Computed example of a mutant assay.
Amino acid sequence: MNKEDKLILNGHEFTSRFILGSGKYSLELIKAAVENAGAEIITLALRRAAGGDVANILDYIPKGVTLLPNTSGARNADEAVRIARLARETGCGDFIKIEAIRDTKYLLPDNYETLKATEILAKEGFVVMPYMYPDLNFARDLQNAGAACIMPLGSPIGSNKGLCTKEFIKILIDEIDLPIIVDAGIGRPSQACEAMEMGAAAVMANTAIATAGDVPKMAQAFKKAIEAGRESYLAGFGDVVEKGARASSPLTGFLHD
């Protein structure tokens, strides 16, 4: 891994491009997952903290890891803003992942409410990381509103279906001058690698690791896949031969008539 290749969010630098969600872990597995993933950012649902688990969760997160509270459970901008302010007041810092979801079946984000929350919180000095359905116009609006990155879903939350929105994410990568972090639905390390090969700045995963047979091993597999995808993107891909084939070694004279 290239230590000079940094993920930068509002001036904050990170070497790891793996953001780890913690919502579905037992407390006993959080530390192992974080350490094996090499993650420097981990999400924290304030709903879980409000239930009395916050002290225990923090006990299992290694020092130096940046907390990313999310507004899970918020149905609109007003609720998301209240949760974000509460997270700051409880000492969780200025990072906030905006989730505004009123769809209870597919759990798709409400882009309009997400934009409203982003506008308010960015003005208050938060490092706003909005989770959104990949739409170029809303991504542009989020950038103008002061978002630190754009976090489009790969597929519905918790589905492990992978990059169902791949073509739309590509558009965001090409057109938006902010880090594009693929969030939700990544189910396998190979899918995380593919997202990074496309040019995504980072990948967030939760369910794929939390529901794996061996959580620490799967966390490590994701770490390696994300690093490999990033390295291959930076290296640049070879030309694709659409028709026929191309010899990998030059043909020597004795093979010709």
Rank of each mutant, 00 (worst) to 15 (best):
I176R: 09
A87K: 07
I180T: 11
S155P: 00
P130W: 07
G125C: 13
E175T: 10
A145T: 02
G93T: 03
V182K: 04
M196I: 04
V128A: 09
N111F: 09
K166D: 00
G187S: 04
N137E: 15
N137V: 12
D135M: 12
N160V: 03
D177H: 07
A100D: 02
E175M: 15
R140T: 10
A184Y: 04
F126S: 05
A192N: 02
A122Y: 07
T207G: 12
A208H: 03
N206L: 08
N111Q: 11
L142D: 01
A147N: 00
D103C: 11
E167W: 12
L121C: 12
V127A: 10
Q143D: 10
I186M: 02
K97F: 07
P189H: 08
L108D: 00
T90H: 08
K105H: 12
D110M: 11
M151T: 01
V215A: 10
G185Y: 03
I150M: 06
D174L: 14
A147P: 00
K170S: 14
D141Q: 15
L172C: 11
A210S: 11
L178P: 00
G199T: 02
G91C: 13
D174F: 10
Y131N: 08
C92Y: 06
G158Q: 10
F95G: 05
K116N: 08
T104R: 15
I169Y: 08
P156E: 14
C193Q: 10
L163R: 02
E194Y: 00
I98M: 07
T211G: 06
S159M: 09
A202P: 01
A201M: 09
G154F: 07
I101D: 04
G213P: 00
A84T: 01
I120K: 13
E167Y: 13
A139P: 02
L142I: 01
M198N: 02
T165M: 15
P179W: 01
I96A: 11
D177L: 12
T211I: 10
G185I: 08
T114V: 11
